[in-house]
């Protein structure tokens, strides 16, 4: 899939930054069959990392049990407005994508 898009937003309120991200990915478990009865090979994001200012905020390990076009949200302390936040993923085929957002 060539169009690996990530939508990401980081909002600061009362010292807590809330990150919301939406990734485009088929998230195939490898246990599904197509209309011809052939197995669809597994294709899912295995690892998502999120960091800001050299600080590792979150590492997510996923299976094919996470829904298609995955949504992820988490919160962290100590973020500052104007700082950049980077989110990156890698899937079981070695494909990867990343995106940055400014903390607002």
């Amino acid at each position: 899939m060539a169009t690996n898009s990530i939508k990401i937003r980081a909002q600061l309120k009362d010292g807590v930054t809330t990150v919301k991200a939406l990734m485009t990915h088929p998230m195939e478990t490898g246990a599904r069959k197509d209309s011809d009865g052939k197995m669809i090979p597994a294709h899912f994001i295995q690892e998502v990392t999120c960091e800001s200012g050299g600080r590792k905020l979150l590492t997510a390990y996923w299976s094919g049990g996470v829904s298609k076009n995955p949504y992820l949200s988490f919160k962290f302390n100590g973020g500052k407005a104007g700082e950049m936040l980077k989110l990156a993923w890698m899937d079981n085929k070695g494909e990867s994508a990343s995106a940055e957002a400014e903390i607002k």
Partner: peptide, 20 residues
Amino acid sequence: LVASYELGEGTEGFVSTRIK
């Protein structure tokens, strides 16, 4: 096992996601 999240220092005990 669907997902596992490692929280960094300062990251709150909170995650939200969508699963099958």
